[in-house]
Design a binder for these strands. Structure first.
Lengths: 347, 347
DNA sequence: ATGAAAGCGCTAACAG
DNA sequence: CTGTTAGCGCTTTCAT
């Protein structure tokens, strides 16, 4: 693939352009960077030289001398989760529009992956970081971070850095109130290790508060990873099915994300539990999938595109000096999308 | 966020380490790069200095002097399509395992996006490129490419560069033979602009050959973008429904990818066409989604993880000089996954 | 408005 | 085995 060195003509440098245009390399640099204070006539000559030589600035050299890239590092929870995929897509697009290239790293829910990816990104001197997720070992992550590199959390919140997210409490409340309004009295909150701790706690708290206000009793969070028949309540294993059988059965569930809710629908189908008659299910995120007729999952919608846009805005604001000072926290509004998993469709 | 320059201590450089260890910077460089020919004792001293100073090699400087990065550029068709998301995930992981960082760019099915992303990647001097998709304007893409940067196509084939893919013909044949075996006599081939031309043609050809061999008549490819009621056959609009109604109705469809097949299931549901009784549907890719009980889509499975692994292997092979010479083309085997969209489940 | 010059931190010959 | 040296291509003062 590579030609022998002697035969491959070196790409033209700023020096070649300078010679061709009979100016100094500083002037060429000024023209290339669009700095003002270059005579119109000179600028023209330089641009002509650039064109005829086919000069392309060497990004590596620029990055080196400035000790800064125009790369935005993006930490993705798991690309297989459409929520992250959609967020990642949005972030990539907005970043590109603003002149940054996105470097997506998939941390697959693993703290070790997260740390190694952050280290790689920092080593690359990325201009900024966008976290779409964070699992475990916050200390190790923070240690790997360069304090001069702005970071923003999108779709989740950490106090020590900028963030853009929806209120987990508010979202969970919307969902819970909907279930309570439908007459459900025993409603479980299902979460999993794939959902960030803090987000999950917020959602649980929101759920509890609605239940209390309605005079109903809330239970502890139930952990279920979306496969197998066994869940955990307060660290003790219980069969998932036991939650939905017997006198004390739950008739509705709020899931901590759509993927889990869909897995629960699967489970219900296998167990011949009718949804929504025997079991109402609400998810969280509103991934596209949730809207398919065959899934038809009621869920709490996160404004994914707006989150992505705001997150990019936030880091870029720091990078361009428009924002300084302590961490900012923007909160966007969740909304409820009612579908067939809670309300039987009119036939 | 940034401390005043005077107060932020410059990160230690190779020179500081050299001074501290009382050796020359070349020796430090040799130790850092793991080059042999360094006395054990010296190596120890240097490593100690590195540790006490907390020295971290400056990747930007290295990249600059070598005029090469360890970044792999990855062109993704559309992250919202789980097929690409799963591929991207695999590529990122395998690349990282081999010491490369992946830079994912989403081209969203647009030629302009593709060109601009490739330009950005080339400007960054990525070590290699992995194309998971390619839409239109191949010439513009090739023009933007640096001939010294190896590129590989994963999941699709282009003759002018390395590729790893499954045979579209073989895959389509598996699917078609399945439908023919089930007794279907009028089977449509549905494709869309989101599927690469070449792949789509291969799948259509495979489908046709099975139909001919069975003495059945194949038709032209039907274009449908997954939404709306209107499709196009040979450039002329027809209502999608007309394909499935009347005496000449098709009783089965082979779709060019799973996402389209799922959209077709939606359509069928809306039109009260029963699947598989009135209409059998086969997809292509076998994204996870296809296996959900509520979707249960029969499909042609592409070995996504193997494709990703092989693709990374291929570029890395070029980069490390293990492969030279003309473009290589690896072909992996597709397989058929039969589910409820073609065969009614036993009750 | 333009030019001269000093690096940025590292690699890679080449000498010793 | 270790040190010396010459850049890589660009940005950025600082003179002119």
């Amino acid at each position: 693939v590579t030609l022998p060195d002697s035969r491959r003509p070196r790409a033209p440098t700023i020096l070649d352009v300078a010679a061709h245009a009979r100016v100094s390399k500083s002037t060429v640099s000024n023209v290339v960077r669009g700095s003002d204070g270059v005579a119109e006539e000179t600028r023209r000559r330089v641009q002509e030289a650039i064109a005829t030589l086919g000069y392309r600035p060497n990004a590596l050299a620029r990055q080196f001398v400035r000790q800064r890239t125009t790369i935005l590092g993006v930490l993705v929870g798991d690309l297989e989760n459409p929520f992250y995929a959609e967020m990642a897509k949005g972030v990539e697009r907005y970043a590109f529009e603003r002149g940054y290239t996105a470097m997506l790293c998939n941390i697959e829910g693993s703290p070790d992956f997260a740390v190694s990816r952050v280290e790689a990104l920092v080593e690359q001197h990325v201009a900024g970081l966008v976290f779409l997720a964070l699992f475990g070992g916050v200390d190790r992550i923070r240690a790997a971070l360069d304090p001069a590199t702005p970071a923003v959390f999108a779709g989740l919140r950490e106090d020590w850095a900028d963030s853009v997210s929806v209120s987990d409490r508010a979202g969970a409340k919307l969902a819970m109130q909907h279930l309570v309004d439908l007459g459900h009295e025993r409603i479980a909150y299902l979460t999993s290790s794939h959902v960030e701790e803090r987000a999950s706690r917020g959602r649980h708290a929101g759920a509890q508060s609605v239940l209390r206000a309605a005079g109903l009793s809330g239970g502890p969070a139930v952990y279920w990873d979306g496969e197998g028949e066994v869940a955990r309540v307060g660290g003790r294993p219980v069969t998932l099915l036991s939650l939905f059988k017997g006198r004390e059965r739950h008739t509705a569930v709020l899931c901590s994300n759509d993927l889990q809710a869909i897995a629960l629908l699967e489970f219900a189908d296998r167990q011949s539990l009718r949804v929504p008659e025997d079991l109402a299910v609400v998810g969280f995120d509103d991934i596209h999938l949730a809207g398919l007729a065959r899934i038809s999952l009621s869920t709490v919608r996160q404004p994914i595109d707006a989150l992505a846009a705001a997150a990019v805005d936030t880091v870029v604001g720091r990078l361009e000096g428009r924002t300084t000072g302590p961490a900012t926290h923007r909160s966007l509004e969740p909304s409820l999308v009612v579908r067939g998993s809670t309300v039987a469709r009119a036939a």
